[in-house]
Design a protein around this nucleic acid. Structure first.
Lengths: 241, 241
DNA sequence: CGCTGTCTTGAAAGGACTCAACGCCGGTGG
DNA sequence: CCACCGGCGTTGAGTCCTTTCAAGACAGCG
């Protein structure tokens, strides 16, 4: 089976055989994390970065009074903490939402890439910048949209991101997050998440059975969430030279 | 006078003379933007990135219904849109808050850096990752703190960032943003910004005369804003090899 | 079968918003 | 030199989205 990282990076243009070999080599050590387990502790100084091969993970900050804010969700093919390679110290933490299979990529190996593979370096840089673009978009939904629109927006985002790795079919996908986690991500209480979800279901926009989320009316959900996928920079090609 | 970019990047460790020469060379073309002028339009595909030499700038997104969210403020020494070098298309826009002197750094030149100066590349990457860390922190304040704490937090953040470039003295500095801009950054209406500022002044935490902001009780402001500057990664050294 | 985590529901309280109007001040033009 | 103007800050009142607290229902699991 093909390497999820290579697939992810090749969305932005072909890689040379040599580049693919390197990527293959540095992603060979894998670990499993169960639901709610910590993948990278907040404040730690890891010597490797974690690539999600399988599962669903979150990144979170804690305010000083202990409240949790989830700042990102990660799907297979995403680096959850590539930033720790450059920033060294984690200002945030990474946790498994559902069971995750993770490749641990040594920072030593990443540094070799930056020394010898400038194109690969730019593509890796690109993935961290897309994270930033998603952060900005979440800022916009948090600052300027109501709870219903925020959740609608997120369901659209996830549909596109999971679709890109073959994990969404017919606008439906597995969403392993609890209502508490959704609340921690989108600045709302668990109670309110529950009520908004009921509204969205009641209005025929989505259906959910257990962890399965089905989007019934994607056009309307996009409109309610004011969703436009530009910020994901999904199929953008990066010139090599 | 010394180059603000070199000063900024050298916070993370010494640069070679050759690296400094390159930086000096690529930041030589400057432009002035007046208050409220657009520096980089949302959705554009710039061929250069804008380094703030002087002034105060903002980055913003618009929701589809036209509401503005400011996602970052930039001070001298900051690249406002280094991400456009790698992402190509701007998902956000950059505007001058106060008059800005800006160095326009050609993407062509940045690409040469990624080919020949791996250390410099990592340091530049670092600055975009700090932007990301600030975004995450803002997400946390937006999602999990009330309006008063968000503003308190921001005033502490700016005190540290401006202090690092010599633009804050005795915990006071120029803050050229209007109350409307603060509202657009921190998810609140102009009216509410006004009221919260009055509270902060009334409680003796800050004083403001015109555009000058004075922090009267930094310890208490930090506590109210739950502020800790770790996420700015300010004095972190990056090893060269 | 009981436990624990998750989802659901109700009621009351509150933070923040909208609308609307007014004051202040610096700039500009007559 | 002064009156007008537009941008910005301030105030008041009413409304509403969202929270908190509390408790009950449900379901998977050991």
């Amino acid at each position: 089976m093909s390497n999820p990282l290579i697939g992810r990076l090749e969305r932005h243009g072909p890689l040379t055989d040599e580049e693919k070999e390197v990527l293959q080599r540095i992603t060979s050590r894998t670990t499993i994390f169960g639901p709610h387990e910590t993948i990278v502790p907040e404040g730690s100084t890891p010597s490797h970065s974690s690539l999600i091969l399988d599962g669903f993970a979150s990144r979170h900050n804690h305010s000083l009074d202990g409240r949790r804010q989830i700042t990102a969700f990660h799907v297979p093919g995403d680096f959850a903490d590539l930033h720790s390679f450059v920033l060294k110290k984690m200002d945030d933490g990474v946790a498994a939402v559902a069971t995750c299979r993770v490749a641990e990529v040594a920072h030593r190996d990443l540094k070799e890439i930056t020394k010898h593979f400038p194109h690969l370096t730019r593509v890796l840089w690109h993935t961290t910048l897309v994270d930033g673009a998603v952060h900005r978009t979440w800022l916009t939904t948090l600052g300027r949209m109501d709870a219903r629109a925020r959740l609608a927006h997120f369901f659209c985002e996830l549909n596109d991101r999971l679709g890109a790795v073959g994990l969404a079919n017919d606008d439906s996908y597995e969403l392993p997050a609890t209502q508490e986690e959704l609340g921690d991500a989108f600045g709302m209480s668990t109670v309110h998440v529950n009520r908004v979800l009921q509204d969205l279901r009641g209005d025929g926009l989505i259906t959910s059975r257990g962890k399965l989320l089905i989007i019934n009316d994607l056009a309307r959900l996009r409109e309610e969430g004011q969703y436009s996928p530009d910020y994901l920079h999904m199929d953008q090609k990066l010139e090599r030279d």
